[in-house]
Amino acid sequence: MPVSNSFRSLLPVLLLLVLLALVPLLSPSNRFLSLAISAGINVIALYGLSVLFGQTGILSMGHAALVGIGAYTAAILARDFNIGFWLSIPLAGIMAAIVAALIGIPSLRVSGHHFVIMTFAFGQLLSIILTNGGDYTGAASGLDVQQPVSLFGLSIDVLTHYYLMVVFFVALSAIASWAIINSRYGRTLRAIRENEKLAASLGINVGRHKIGAFIVSGVFAGASGVLLAYFLRHISPSQFSSFPSIYLALMVMIGGARLLLGPLAGGILVAFLPELLNLDPVQSRILYGVCLIAVILLLPNGLIAGIIAGWHRIFDRRPAQPSEPAVEREGK
């Protein structure tokens, strides 16, 4: 029953998202909704990063720059071509994918730390280009997004509606990520992650698939950028420099990149932890640093994988699961 087995990994995510979609019934504060929307937008980008990092084993420190490509594409399409939100989503996804390919082709000739450095540099470079882009990019001041968002005549600009829309896009991203993980393509990516040379010896075109994974992650990032631009209504280069990319990498590492619940957990934790514990940015960074070290040392597959392993150890009396329990099963 391979299909039902693989669907079991998606089910908890969908159930959690259904429950999250019901949160507006509890009349949450607008502050909560606003933070939840920001977290959800990050989670969409994180699903892309999880394909790249979790499945292919490539860590990018320039993912926020691809989000920026999506956001600026949406803002420029709205300003210059009067193209609204819904058409911007696929167009920005395509644009971010193209940029990811352009960056990926030279960058993925190197691997490991060198690739991380190159993607980091890409983030900085994009910020410089946007800052010095004159009126076209709004220079350092950035761009406004004026177009309203509506669906079948219903305004989505209301915070609750926007929240529900973001939950919907998170669900789509999770399903897309699940489909990739459980496809032949996903298995190919995992083969590359586990042993590049062995994968190449089996006839897999490693370079092409790595660039492909980078492009796929760009599509997620581009869509997330559109949602961000239409939520904030004003974007500027500083939002997409290297520092936000480090945060995205941190989120995916803390939550766990290999399980579907990982990006969701990482995005929510990093967004709400400073709020819950009333931490200032310095304290937050210290806490994230400690969490990251703890995760790397104690839970190398992320928090969710660690929790699942702990659960089984305590309640099922089963031996601790290997890394990536669901995915490994699905991949076989």
Partner: peptide, 18 residues
């Protein structure tokens, strides 16, 4: 799974309540 999901939602709802 449902039980765990409901717990999470209640927790988030409690945080969200103005």
């Amino acid at each position: 799974v449902l039980l765990r999901g409901a717990t999470v939602a209640l927790f988030l709802g409690a945080l969200a309540y103005p």
